[in-house]
């Protein structure tokens, strides 16, 4: 990965490669197991009760009658086949992909410890930093696995300066998140409705102080 000043990930070559978190896929497993167990139990109960002199339950009777009457050319056969294929493909997809995309691995802190930062936590931490930049209004932050997209509005001041300040603040926060693979930042600013251009005289009278808004907003 190349090193770009404007927010490309900086990776130290010696760091051990953190393993991605593989989801245990509990939800689909529980669903499959429940459905399977319930279906087996229902049929088993009915078959055994018939074996001991009972009568087949109405649902099994209706189901078998329907199946006996069904022809391959029925539209229902095509629909059932499509549903089976889609569900089957989906389960196979679930089984072979890692999942847990919303948990970004952090740099291993040593020992047998693995840590993951939720995507929403990344977004909240970055948003707080973005809102602290003087002149920045709303900041919408969308975190993907490799990239963070920041859309901010400028309420006052020079948009290019606000963007530079946002880039600086967000890059430093991003690097402090401790992520194993810091996401790339894509920052875009646009003036919001109330934005008025900074008064030129003020900028000139400020002289050497090239960013009066930034200077004024520092705490």
């Amino acid at each position: 990965m190349s090193q770009v000043p404007d927010g490309r990930a900086v990776e130290s070559p010696s760091a051990p490669k953190p393993r991605r978190s593989w989801s245990a896929r509990r939800a689909p497993a529980v669903l499959c197991a429940l459905l399977g167990a319930a279906a087996c139990a229902a049929v088993l109960y009915d078959v055994v009760s018939v074996r001991f002199g009972g009568t087949p339950s109405p649902w099994r009777h209706a189901l078998l009658n329907h199946l006996y009457g069904m022809s391959v050319t029925d539209a229902l056969a095509v629909v059932a086949a499509a549903v089976l294929v889609v569900v089957g493909l989906w389960l196979i997809f679930l089984a072979v992909t890692p999942g847990a995309r919303k948990r970004a691995p952090m740099k291993p802190p040593g020992g047998d410890v693995r840590a993951f930062l939720d995507r929403s936590a990344t977004a909240l931490l970055l948003r707080d930093v973005a809102l602290e930049v003087p002149g920045a209004g709303d900041a919408k932050i969308r975190v993907r696995r490799r990239k963070v997209r920041v859309r901010a509005t400028v309420r006052f001041g020079d948009p290019t300066e606000v963007e530079a300040e946002l880039t600086r603040a967000l890059t430093s926060k991003r690097d402090g998140l401790g992520l194993a693979r810091p996401p790339r930042l894509a920052i875009r600013v646009r003036p919001d409705g109330d934005w008025t251009p900074p008064v030129p005289e003020q900028a000139e009278s400020a002289g050497s102080e090239d960013a009066p808004m930034t200077a004024g907003g520092k705490k």
Partner: peptide
């Protein structure tokens, strides 16, 4: 899950 997926895919494909 992959076994069940293959069974469903096979059955659905055949049908």
């Amino acid at each position: 899950i992959v076994v069940i997926g293959l069974v469903l895919l096979g059955g659905g494909g055949w049908l």
